[in-house]
Amino acid sequence: MSRWEPNARGRLEQAALALYGERGYERVTVAEIAARAGLTERTFFRHYADKREVLFDGTNRLQQTLTGAVADAPADQTPIELVRTALTAVGELFEAGERREPARQRQAVIDKNPELQERELVKLARLGTALTDALHGHGVPAPAASLAAQVGIAVFRVTFPRWLDDPHRRPFPDLIRAGFDELRAMTC
Protein backbone atom coordinates (compact mmCIF):
# COMPACT_ATOMS: atom_id res chain seq x y z
CA MET A 1 0.00 0.00 0.00
CA SER A 2 1.19 3.47 -0.73
CA ARG A 3 1.99 5.84 2.09
CA TRP A 4 -0.74 8.30 1.18
CA GLU A 5 -4.18 7.32 -0.01
CA PRO A 6 -6.74 9.90 -1.15
CA ASN A 7 -10.01 10.20 0.79
CA ALA A 8 -8.99 7.68 3.45
CA ARG A 9 -11.68 8.88 5.86
CA GLY A 10 -14.46 8.55 3.30
CA ARG A 11 -13.20 5.14 2.19
CA LEU A 12 -13.10 3.94 5.80
CA GLU A 13 -16.67 5.15 6.34
CA GLN A 14 -17.90 3.41 3.18
CA ALA A 15 -16.09 0.20 4.07
CA ALA A 16 -17.42 0.22 7.64
CA LEU A 17 -21.01 0.87 6.57
CA ALA A 18 -20.83 -1.89 3.96
CA LEU A 19 -19.38 -4.41 6.40
CA TYR A 20 -21.77 -3.46 9.21
CA GLY A 21 -24.65 -3.90 6.79
CA GLU A 22 -23.39 -7.26 5.54
CA ARG A 23 -22.31 -8.86 8.80
CA GLY A 24 -23.57 -6.73 11.65
CA TYR A 25 -21.66 -4.20 13.73
CA GLU A 26 -20.60 -6.69 16.39
CA ARG A 27 -18.95 -9.09 13.93
CA VAL A 28 -16.75 -6.55 12.16
CA THR A 29 -13.21 -5.69 13.23
CA VAL A 30 -11.14 -2.60 12.61
CA ALA A 31 -8.69 -4.75 10.63
CA GLU A 32 -11.51 -5.82 8.30
CA ILE A 33 -12.68 -2.25 7.81
CA ALA A 34 -9.16 -1.09 6.98
CA ALA A 35 -8.60 -4.01 4.61
CA ARG A 36 -11.91 -3.35 2.80
CA ALA A 37 -10.88 0.28 2.39
CA GLY A 38 -7.44 -0.74 1.11
CA LEU A 39 -5.75 0.89 4.09
CA THR A 40 -3.90 -0.14 7.23
CA GLU A 41 -5.21 -0.36 10.78
CA ARG A 42 -2.82 2.43 11.66
CA THR A 43 -4.54 4.65 9.10
CA PHE A 44 -7.90 3.72 10.60
CA PHE A 45 -6.75 4.79 14.05
CA ARG A 46 -5.39 8.05 12.67
CA HIS A 47 -8.97 8.93 11.76
CA TYR A 48 -11.11 7.16 14.35
CA ALA A 49 -10.68 6.14 17.99
CA ASP A 50 -12.66 2.91 17.46
CA LYS A 51 -15.09 1.28 15.06
CA ARG A 52 -18.08 2.92 16.76
CA GLU A 53 -16.80 6.41 16.03
CA VAL A 54 -17.12 5.84 12.28
CA LEU A 55 -20.87 6.08 12.88
CA PHE A 56 -20.66 9.24 15.00
CA ASP A 57 -17.97 11.13 13.15
CA GLY A 58 -20.14 14.11 12.20
CA THR A 59 -21.29 15.01 15.71
CA ASN A 60 -18.88 17.92 16.17
CA ARG A 61 -19.82 19.35 12.79
CA LEU A 62 -23.53 19.08 13.66
CA GLN A 63 -22.91 20.85 16.94
CA GLN A 64 -20.89 23.62 15.29
CA THR A 65 -23.60 24.07 12.66
CA LEU A 66 -26.36 24.29 15.28
CA THR A 67 -24.56 26.70 17.53
CA GLY A 68 -23.20 28.79 14.66
CA ALA A 69 -26.66 29.19 13.15
CA VAL A 70 -28.03 30.42 16.47
CA ALA A 71 -25.14 32.83 16.93
CA ASP A 72 -25.63 34.24 13.42
CA ALA A 73 -29.43 34.50 13.65
CA PRO A 74 -31.20 37.86 13.95
CA ALA A 75 -31.69 39.04 17.52
CA ASP A 76 -35.46 39.43 17.09
CA GLN A 77 -36.18 35.72 16.51
CA THR A 78 -38.17 33.85 19.14
CA PRO A 79 -36.50 30.86 20.82
CA ILE A 80 -38.42 28.41 18.61
CA GLU A 81 -37.54 30.41 15.50
CA LEU A 82 -33.88 30.27 16.53
CA VAL A 83 -34.09 26.49 16.92
CA ARG A 84 -35.84 26.13 13.56
CA THR A 85 -33.10 28.24 11.98
CA ALA A 86 -30.42 26.03 13.55
CA LEU A 87 -32.07 22.77 12.48
CA THR A 88 -32.62 24.11 8.98
CA ALA A 89 -28.87 24.80 8.81
CA VAL A 90 -28.20 21.20 9.88
CA GLY A 91 -30.59 20.09 7.16
CA GLU A 92 -28.62 22.01 4.58
CA LEU A 93 -25.51 20.21 5.81
CA PHE A 94 -27.28 16.86 5.29
CA GLU A 95 -28.29 17.83 1.77
CA ALA A 96 -24.77 18.81 0.77
CA GLY A 97 -22.92 15.88 -0.74
CA GLU A 98 -25.74 13.36 -0.98
CA ARG A 99 -25.69 12.12 2.62
CA ARG A 100 -29.12 10.44 2.58
CA GLU A 101 -28.01 6.92 1.61
CA PRO A 102 -25.01 6.76 3.99
CA ALA A 103 -27.26 8.19 6.72
CA ARG A 104 -29.83 5.47 5.99
CA GLN A 105 -27.13 2.78 6.21
CA ARG A 106 -25.78 4.30 9.42
CA GLN A 107 -29.22 4.41 11.02
CA ALA A 108 -29.93 0.79 10.08
CA VAL A 109 -26.75 -0.27 11.92
CA ILE A 110 -27.64 1.82 14.98
CA ASP A 111 -31.21 0.49 15.06
CA LYS A 112 -29.89 -3.09 15.40
CA ASN A 113 -27.51 -2.45 18.29
CA PRO A 114 -28.51 -1.30 21.80
CA GLU A 115 -24.99 -0.01 22.56
CA LEU A 116 -25.10 2.19 19.47
CA GLN A 117 -28.66 3.33 20.26
CA GLU A 118 -27.39 4.46 23.65
CA ARG A 119 -24.50 6.31 22.01
CA GLU A 120 -26.99 8.00 19.64
CA LEU A 121 -29.05 9.19 22.63
CA VAL A 122 -25.91 10.57 24.27
CA LYS A 123 -25.11 12.42 21.04
CA LEU A 124 -28.60 13.92 20.92
CA ALA A 125 -28.39 14.94 24.58
CA ARG A 126 -25.08 16.70 23.92
CA LEU A 127 -26.54 18.46 20.92
CA GLY A 128 -29.48 19.55 23.08
CA THR A 129 -27.12 20.93 25.72
CA ALA A 130 -25.05 22.77 23.11
CA LEU A 131 -28.21 24.20 21.58
CA THR A 132 -29.44 25.30 25.01
CA ASP A 133 -26.13 27.03 25.67
CA ALA A 134 -26.20 28.72 22.26
CA LEU A 135 -29.74 29.97 22.86
CA HIS A 136 -28.78 31.23 26.30
CA GLY A 137 -25.77 32.98 24.74
CA HIS A 138 -28.14 34.59 22.23
CA GLY A 139 -30.10 36.12 25.11
CA VAL A 140 -32.80 33.50 25.67
CA PRO A 141 -33.38 32.99 29.42
CA ALA A 142 -32.24 29.62 30.77
CA PRO A 143 -35.60 27.85 31.23
CA ALA A 144 -36.91 28.94 27.83
CA ALA A 145 -33.59 28.07 26.17
CA SER A 146 -33.70 24.54 27.56
CA LEU A 147 -37.33 24.01 26.61
CA ALA A 148 -36.83 25.33 23.07
CA ALA A 149 -33.71 23.20 22.57
CA GLN A 150 -35.45 20.04 23.77
CA VAL A 151 -38.43 20.73 21.53
CA GLY A 152 -36.00 21.19 18.66
CA ILE A 153 -34.27 17.89 19.38
CA ALA A 154 -37.69 16.20 19.45
CA VAL A 155 -38.57 17.70 16.06
CA PHE A 156 -35.19 16.53 14.75
CA ARG A 157 -35.78 12.99 16.06
CA VAL A 158 -39.15 12.83 14.28
CA THR A 159 -37.91 14.47 11.09
CA PHE A 160 -34.72 12.44 10.59
CA PRO A 161 -36.43 9.08 9.90
CA ARG A 162 -38.96 10.86 7.68
CA TRP A 163 -36.09 12.26 5.63
CA LEU A 164 -34.39 8.88 5.38
CA ASP A 165 -37.52 7.14 4.13
CA ASP A 166 -39.23 9.93 2.19
CA PRO A 167 -40.29 8.49 -1.19
CA HIS A 168 -40.38 12.02 -2.63
CA ARG A 169 -36.82 12.72 -1.44
CA ARG A 170 -37.84 16.11 -0.07
CA PRO A 171 -34.94 18.17 1.30
CA PHE A 172 -34.29 17.93 5.03
CA PRO A 173 -34.82 21.69 5.60
CA ASP A 174 -38.30 21.40 4.06
CA LEU A 175 -39.14 18.52 6.39
CA ILE A 176 -37.83 20.46 9.40
CA ARG A 177 -40.09 23.39 8.50
CA ALA A 178 -43.01 20.97 8.09
CA GLY A 179 -42.23 19.48 11.51
CA PHE A 180 -42.36 22.91 13.13
CA ASP A 181 -45.58 23.67 11.26
CA GLU A 182 -47.10 20.47 12.68
CA LEU A 183 -45.92 21.46 16.16
CA ARG A 184 -47.46 24.91 15.81
CA ALA A 185 -50.75 23.39 14.60
CA MET A 186 -50.85 21.08 17.63
CA THR A 187 -50.18 23.85 20.14
CA CYS A 188 -52.46 26.59 18.81
Results as ranks from 00 to 15, higher is better:
residue 4 W to L: 10
residue 4 W to D: 10
residue 4 W to N: 13
residue 6 P to N: 10
residue 6 P to F: 05
residue 8 A to R: 14
residue 13 E to P: 00
residue 13 E to C: 03
residue 14 Q to E: 14
residue 16 A to C: 02
residue 16 A to P: 03
residue 18 A to R: 11
residue 20 Y to L: 03
residue 22 E to A: 12
residue 22 E to D: 08
residue 23 R to L: 01
residue 23 R to P: 01
residue 28 V to W: 03
residue 30 V to H: 00
residue 30 V to Q: 03
residue 31 A to H: 10
residue 31 A to L: 03
residue 31 A to F: 01
residue 33 I to L: 11
residue 33 I to N: 01
residue 34 A to E: 01
residue 34 A to V: 03
residue 35 A to E: 08
residue 36 R to M: 00
residue 40 T to G: 09
residue 40 T to D: 08
residue 40 T to S: 15
residue 43 T to G: 07
residue 44 F to D: 13
residue 44 F to G: 12
residue 45 F to Y: 15
residue 46 R to K: 12
residue 46 R to H: 14
residue 47 H to T: 06
residue 49 A to K: 13
residue 50 D to I: 02
residue 55 L to W: 11
residue 56 F to W: 12
residue 58 G to S: 14
residue 59 T to A: 14
residue 60 N to Q: 15
residue 60 N to Y: 06
residue 61 R to D: 13
residue 64 Q to G: 09
residue 64 Q to K: 07
residue 66 L to Q: 02
residue 68 G to K: 04
residue 68 G to V: 15
residue 68 G to Q: 03
residue 69 A to M: 13
residue 70 V to K: 04
residue 72 D to H: 13
residue 72 D to C: 07
residue 74 P to L: 10
residue 75 A to W: 05
residue 75 A to T: 14
residue 76 D to N: 13
residue 77 Q to F: 11
residue 78 T to S: 15
residue 80 I to N: 07
residue 81 E to M: 06
residue 81 E to N: 11
residue 83 V to W: 02
residue 83 V to H: 01
residue 84 R to Y: 00
residue 88 T to S: 10
residue 90 V to R: 10
residue 91 G to P: 11
residue 94 F to A: 14
residue 95 E to M: 08
residue 97 G to N: 13
residue 97 G to E: 10
residue 98 E to G: 15
residue 99 R to F: 07
residue 100 R to L: 05
residue 103 A to F: 14
residue 106 R to K: 15
residue 106 R to W: 10
residue 107 Q to L: 13
residue 108 A to H: 10
residue 108 A to E: 12
residue 110 I to Y: 08
residue 110 I to G: 13
residue 112 K to C: 13
residue 115 E to V: 09
residue 116 L to Y: 07
residue 120 E to K: 09
residue 120 E to D: 09
residue 122 V to S: 00
residue 122 V to D: 03
residue 123 K to Y: 02
residue 138 H to A: 11
residue 140 V to N: 01
residue 141 P to W: 00
residue 147 L to T: 11
residue 150 Q to N: 14
residue 154 A to R: 12
residue 158 V to M: 15
residue 159 T to M: 09
residue 159 T to S: 09
residue 159 T to Q: 07
residue 160 F to M: 09
residue 161 P to V: 12
residue 161 P to S: 06
residue 162 R to G: 03
residue 165 D to M: 06
residue 165 D to S: 13
residue 166 D to N: 15
residue 166 D to V: 03
residue 171 P to Y: 12
residue 175 L to I: 15
residue 175 L to W: 08
residue 176 I to R: 12
residue 177 R to I: 10
residue 178 A to G: 07
residue 183 L to G: 06
residue 183 L to A: 12
residue 185 A to R: 15
residue 186 M to R: 02
